[in-house]
Design a protein around this nucleic acid. Structure first.
Lengths: 340, 340
DNA sequence: ATGAAAGCGCTAACAC
DNA sequence: GTGTTAGCGCTTTCAT
């Protein structure tokens, strides 16, 4: 059980002042004009005593913790854990550490997490916000804490945001189905008022218009996050048995996997009976007998940008809200019924 | 931009001492015999001024951060992100927050992470250790920092560990293949000396013995973590073309998905040409044309136990190293060739 | 029933 | 060149 060694210990050990040791160990020896031999002695002592700076103390003094609070819907969702990994790496590169929390799409949980993180004095937040949490974000802004939203966002753009071009990507996907001759195209989407979902739905409708197919409300299956499985089973099921559609567009990968299970149950053949495309990737898509066509978001870019934006804010650069839009691309495979 | 309010602000505002405010806000009013009206006034002021305790300051004073450092191979791996989610929830329940880092199975990265977390004074570590990092763990123990290992572990048991019954689970899986009439059963495993892998291999061999099949070294395909894809493609490929085996057991879900891709390329039919079973779950297994039989580890139990053990250690309970073994169970589906 | 003061470990302005 | 000092926000002992 080795004892903790502080600056004071080193100072005592060497018979010098704490300040001196601090200067040397922070590379401020020149601007504090510390003697070269002294500096060396200090460094050696620090090494020998196995000194570790206490960052808690430093944080108290500096008011900065070099910690970023990451809040997503669910860290176990591959979409978010992949982003978390990118964020972790980029943050580390810039000398930051990440603490995370899952909101389960619940505004109260999100508020709790924000409070816990605030008390711990995180320097900034990266949040994929739950529904109905504008006030929370605004409140953070009012406190002067940098926040950047990822993936999700609100209608008005008053905060930094990094997200994919949801409308265009969705439109492109659905157009692909149209081009492949599908005429009765359904969409399964969360009933969320969040802008990313809004735009995916809008992209779907736009593609239908463009294809002269017209939008039929009964083909837009709404799903509540808290009853995801049930809503998909029942809502989509109604369109499948008896079969009234010839294609489906899923707004997220979790909706798609739930939908695939239901489609299998109905005994439908992809893409003959039904063509399909999903927003977001999922390893499972590769192993479906008809590899699933999907929209690939650049998680890499989103994660990296988010960290960069937020660290810039911490450092006081940037003025107007940043709205960084990342290109998503369609990966065409068998499930959408394209002729090779 | 609201200003931060501290105990001192409240004290000033009320014309009382900082200590008094501290007592009240920490629920120590009775033992400090604070007047009831005074207490009420303090609480109201705190609310009105929107006071938030600065946990950094509290940590400096108490020497406790109520933070757990979680180190895994890769947080974007569903196995680890699922565990992370459990750990997050359990930690939150006990008043702890989690900071995480990915080691990429690299001992130096792991050491870096440990150092960063140490400097930030985490109260404890939960680690899924990389190869060759016994010294790191021992060193933590010597410093008196609680550590619990999850998933992986070392030969000697001198530290708290929570893991599945790897040997038995692997043996059970392979026995299933034997029972299904397979006689040429290969295994794809990491070449890691870590005990969890060691035991999965041992379980495989034990089941072969028990089935009077004998162990053939050329059927144990070794894979290096850093060249996972290549090693699986080549190593397993050699056994597939031409086909020399009638079953494969994969030691992890990532090995299995890589293996499945290779098997598909070889145009083999599961389970007719080849039966298979994987250690660990993967959503993709559900969508393979022959749903994959797998060993399901109880991530829930592992995560919860890990937090409990480590928090107990923080609180000074427990004496001897804990070795908590969690039952894993075989989920039999089509891929292993069982007759229904 | 309340306050004064020390101290957690560190930084930085200022003094000598 | 090096030391002294104040202070970050909090807890807690000891006075009163």
């Amino acid at each position: 059980m080795e004892k903790k060694v502080s600056l004071k210990d080193i100072a005592h050990h060497l018979g010098v002042s704490v300040a001196l040791v601090s200067y040397v160990l922070n590379g401020k020896e020149k601007q504090a004009r510390v003697g070269a031999e002294m500096a060396e002695k200090v460094r050696r002592a620090a090494r020998e005593l196995n000194y570790r700076p206490n960052l808690v103390a430093r944080s108290l003094q500096s008011g900065k913790t070099r910690t970023i609070g990451l809040i997503v819907a669910d860290i176990s969702n591959p979409f978010f854990s992949s982003i978390a990994r990118i964020i972790e790496d980029q943050a580390k590169k810039l000398g930051y550490v990440v603490i995370f929390g899952s909101s389960d799409e619940n505004d109260e949980k999100q508020q709790d997490l924000i409070e816990v993180f605030l008390n711990r004095k995180v320097d900034a937040f990266i949040i994929s916000p739950a529904v109905n949490t504008e006030k929370q974000i605004i409140s953070l802004q009012k406190m002067g804490i940098p926040v950047v939203l990822i993936d999700r966002y609100f209608k008005e753009q008053w905060v930094d945001v990094v997200h994919s071009n949801n409308h265009a990507a969705a439109e492109q996907a659905v157009s692909q189905l149209v081009r492949n001759g599908r005429k009765k195209i359904a969409m399964v989407a969360y009933d969320s008022p969040l802008q990313h979902m809004e735009e995916r739905r809008a992209g779907y409708k736009a593609a239908l218009e463009a294809g002269n197919l017209g939008f039929r409300p009964e083909w837009l299956v709404p799903v509540a996050y808290t009853r995801m499985d049930r809503d998909v089973r029942e809502g989509l099921g109604k369109l499948l048995e008896p079969l009234q559609i010839d294609a489906v567009f899923f707004a997220t990968n979790s909706l798609a996997t739930a939908g695939l299970r239901r489609i299998n149950e109905a005994g439908l053949k992809i893409p003959q009976d039904l063509a399909l495309i999903s927003f977001d990737e999922n390893e499972a898509f590769d192993f479906f007998y008809a590899p699933v066509t999907y929209i690939s978001q650049s998680l890499d870019t989103i994660g990296k940008e988010a960290v960069e934006v937020v660290v810039d804010r911490i450092n006081g650069s940037r003025k107007a809200p940043v709205n960084k839009i990342v290109e998503a691309k369609l990966v065409v495979r068998e499930s959408c019924g394209s002729r090779k």
